[in-house]
Amino acid sequence: MSAELFSLFYQFADVFAFLILSAAGLAIVFGMMGVINMAHGEFIMCGAYVTVGLVRIGLPLAVAQGLAAVTAGLVGVVVEFLIVRRFYKRPLDSLLATWGLSLIVTQSMLLIVGSSITGIGTPEGSFAIGPYTFSTYRLVLFACAVAVLVGLYIVFMKTRFGVLARATMQNAEMARALGARTGRIYAISFGIGAGLAGLCGALYAPTMTLIPTMGATFVVESFVTVVVGGANVLLGTAPAAVFLAMIRMALNASYGQIIGQIGMLFAVILIIRVLPEGLSSVLVRRGR
């Protein structure tokens, strides 16, 4: 019995971690800044590739993952400076720009690095409960997802940078008038978003096939999670992930993956129909 219960929790944690980690970066870039970042998957791929590269030259996995996230963040800052910066006033065009960027990046990786690279294997081993065996690393992923959520909350709600960032996103002119260096704030926020995407790639790198287009598997889930979360990203994304993870887990377990996938998308349609402003609109209203 306890094995079944734990298995339920494990499955939930697994889907939850996947949704949160893939959506966290997008929550900032798309949810807060309004940039429709079609290259989100490529930041994820960047994190994964850098991780593998660093592990190959002998760094411990955790260090490599941290550095990979930082690298993706720095790449994000550069991309923001060169491209994204021009699109804050016309967010829909950012879709086209980042889609172009994503084509360039995936194909360049294919030409430079090749069509696939060898994996590095999953660390941490496994444990058994009842008839089931579980991978310990999947729980590490869950812990990381929770840590990311807490970290985001602290950075954006409790620090001075967070206050300035939120002010800038809400009204850049006013924030600038009050002395915030909005250009830098945008750049850093985008960098954090890209870094979190990189972290997602870094964390999933040991468990996945590594090809240049690997980011694509994350993209739909991440957009869906962020949008269902609604306007208030910090409050919305986590409950959206919980909600979608429960639905998907339940359907996966009873009807298989295809129904899980279709069911989750149906749930998205229904949630938005009932709450056109996303989940956070309810939470915020309650909060007041």
């Binding site: 021009r86 086209l96 720009a97 889609w99 172009g100 960027l101 994503s102 084509l103 360039i104 194909q107």
Partner: peptide
Amino acid sequence: ALILMGGLLLATVM
């Protein structure tokens, strides 16, 4: 091809 197509789009919006 894909690189050129991406570049075309990027250049256009910029």
